[in-house]
Amino acid sequence: MRTLPFPTARSVGGVGMQVATMDDGTAWRADAPAHRVHRIDFHVVMFFSAGPVRHMIDFAEYEATAGDVLWIRPGQVHRFSARDGYRGTVLTMQPGFLPRPVVEATGLYRYDLPPLLRPAPDELDALLASLTQLRREYEDTALPPALHSSVLRHQLTAFLLRLAHLAASSAEAERHRADTTFTLFRDAVERGFATNHSVSAYADALAVSRRTLVRAVRAATGQTPKGFIDRRVVLEAKRLLAHTDLPIGRVGAAVGFPDAANFSKFFHQHTDMTPAAFRTELRQGAGAG
């Protein structure tokens, strides 16, 4: 896999950043097929004025549309869509262009933050105004080179502080949504596990995508939604086997398995024991105590 360096030669005055229009391919794409998977050693921030556009970052697909922002950090693997048209403005920058205190304050290496940002209209207006001013300064060749670079660093810092605040706020909002989604899922499973073992059915009932549900449950428990459902079913089956004299088939039916053979297979997969063996072992142990 190719790692593409920052194309300094394309920058105005050779500075460590660029601002360009995305539909001008020569201004912002490195010399490589953009639709192939590659790694970059610089930052890319894309502001979309149209969409949708599907873009892969670290093997996850993101769909961006007008008003959305994608922030790709150094070292991340990504791929441009070969079919979608990219429209908007792009900022690229070398990691070393800004001093370390600014790098830390702006969270340039916060890989835990989401790449896809969806700013509110007022946030987007403020970011675009700051980006417009940055582009104006970037294209101003009247200044001496040293002063040009100094002005750009100050303007870029102001822009990145706004962007970093948006990224951190988006991450916090995403965590809150994930917590809420998991809580609703957990409650729905508690009500419906005896008849509903389908992840897609729970996602539909909660009006979220299956992918969103997977992320929320994994963030809260480290499990998949299917694993969470199965654990709850097994727990209930164990309770019934331990505390009732229901036949195995009736226990299976009580947790959503009308066919006793399917229930026994499911139970064995998750416990390495048949339901009958579990019940016998539990009761023999209780008698010995």
Rank of each mutant, 00 (worst) to 15 (best):
A254C: 01
S209C: 03
R73M: 02
L241Q: 07
A188W: 11
V69T: 08
G285A: 08
L206C: 04
A34W: 12
I57R: 03
A254N: 08
V214G: 00
A205N: 07
F257K: 14
A205V: 01
T271S: 03
V251R: 14
S81A: 15
T65C: 04
L240E: 12
A34P: 01
L113K: 07
L4V: 11
F6V: 01
T271C: 03
E61H: 11
N262M: 09
T195K: 13
R100Q: 11
A201Q: 05
A20F: 03
G25R: 15
V189I: 09
G285C: 02
T65P: 00
M1Y: 13
T106K: 07
V255S: 09
E190D: 13
P247N: 07
Q18C: 01
P99D: 05
T132H: 10
A9S: 13
P247W: 06
G13M: 02
P144C: 05
R279K: 15
L152V: 02
P119E: 14
I248C: 05
A242K: 13
G256T: 11
L282R: 15
Y202I: 00
A20K: 03
D23W: 13
L160F: 11
Q94T: 06
A32V: 06
P121K: 11
T180I: 09
T92Y: 07
R135Y: 09
R100E: 12
V217T: 12
L246F: 08
E281P: 00
V19E: 09
R135F: 04
R136L: 10
P247E: 13
V53E: 02
D179I: 00
R73Q: 03
R231C: 00
Q284W: 09
T180Y: 07
M1R: 14
A220W: 08
E172Y: 08
A242V: 12
L143M: 07
V15C: 04
R177C: 07
V45K: 10
A34C: 02
F267C: 04
H38G: 02
M22D: 11
R79F: 05
D140L: 04
A260E: 15
R87F: 13
V90Y: 12
H35L: 00
G222D: 05
I72S: 01
T132D: 11
F193I: 06
A194I: 04
R279F: 02
H38I: 03
R29M: 10
P121M: 12
A171C: 08
P101W: 10
R110G: 05
F80E: 15
W71K: 04
L241E: 08
T157D: 02
L98G: 10
R177A: 14
A173M: 10
A173D: 10
V251W: 13
D140Y: 09
R215Y: 06
L128G: 02
F48V: 07
W28T: 03
P95V: 00
P52E: 11
A277S: 08
R110H: 13
H38L: 04
A216R: 04
D179E: 11
G51C: 07
W28P: 02
R186K: 12
L143W: 10
F159A: 11
F48H: 15
A82G: 12
P144M: 06
G75V: 01
H35M: 00
Y138N: 03
P225H: 10
R283P: 00
V217W: 12
E104I: 08
R29W: 06
D230F: 12
A219Y: 12
G252F: 09
A261Y: 12
Q76R: 01
D245R: 14
D112M: 05
D58I: 01
T181H: 12
